[in-house]
Computed example of a mutant assay.
Amino acid sequence: MKRLARVFSALVMLALLGLGAAWFYFAPAPPTPAQPPILGTVDRIIVEKSARRMVLLQAGEKVREYRIALGFSPQGDKVRQGDGRTPEGVFRIDRRNDRSAYHLSLGLDYPQPEDRARAQAGGYDPGGDIMIHGQPNAVGDEVVLRGDWTAGCIAVSNAEMREIWAATDAETVVEVRP
């Protein structure tokens, strides 16, 4: 009987830990303070990987700042497909996808010619399909996954992604810093 009680207690503890972990990863996003809309388009997006921050600039002035999630192995520059890193450097938005598996997505023009040359010389795939995007469509609009969970992309909340989508166009410069 004592053994059964210990097993039951252990199962209850595991279930509670599982609920806690699920709440940590799938908790609703905290409300963001209301800000005036961004008028026009932004000139530049700065991504600071180490600070997990994205800043939108218009005429050299900061108009927005967001917390971001990165690739699951964010330290260092992207080298090859599957390394979980977010590339560093200066890119441009070269495509928009409103039917993405994630809430909206803006594609970066990675890999650059030097990335392709390095990968070809090394005999591997440099990867690609690096995006700024919202949360997975499967989790809903109110959820923001925590931690670095993408395959190398830059993720924000869905509400933030709608704002970024509206304030950018093709050729917007995106600078990704270490």
Rank of each mutant, 00 (worst) to 15 (best):
N137S: 06
A159Q: 01
G60A: 06
G122E: 00
R116C: 05
P74D: 05
R177C: 12
K78N: 02
T32Y: 11
Y66K: 07
N97I: 03
A117S: 07
G89A: 04
E65T: 15
R3C: 15
L4M: 02
A22G: 12
D148H: 10
Q135C: 02
A101N: 12
S157G: 09
V47T: 01
W149K: 01
L14I: 07
V63H: 04
F72Y: 11
Y66P: 13
E163L: 14
R162N: 06
P113I: 03
R116M: 12
V176N: 11
S100I: 11
L39H: 14
L4T: 02
D115G: 09
P37H: 11
A121H: 12
Y124A: 04
I130C: 15
P31K: 05
A101V: 11
T41E: 13
A34T: 00
G147Y: 09
E114Q: 01
Y25M: 05
R177Y: 12
K2S: 13
E142N: 13
A69E: 13
T168R: 13
K62D: 02
F72M: 10
K49Y: 07
A166F: 05
V79N: 06
L11S: 06
M13D: 05
A159W: 09
G140F: 11
P37R: 06
M13H: 06
R44P: 00
R95I: 05
A29V: 08
K78L: 09
L11T: 00
G60N: 09
V79W: 03
L16G: 10
A15E: 06
K78C: 03
A166K: 08
N97F: 04
P111M: 09
D141E: 10
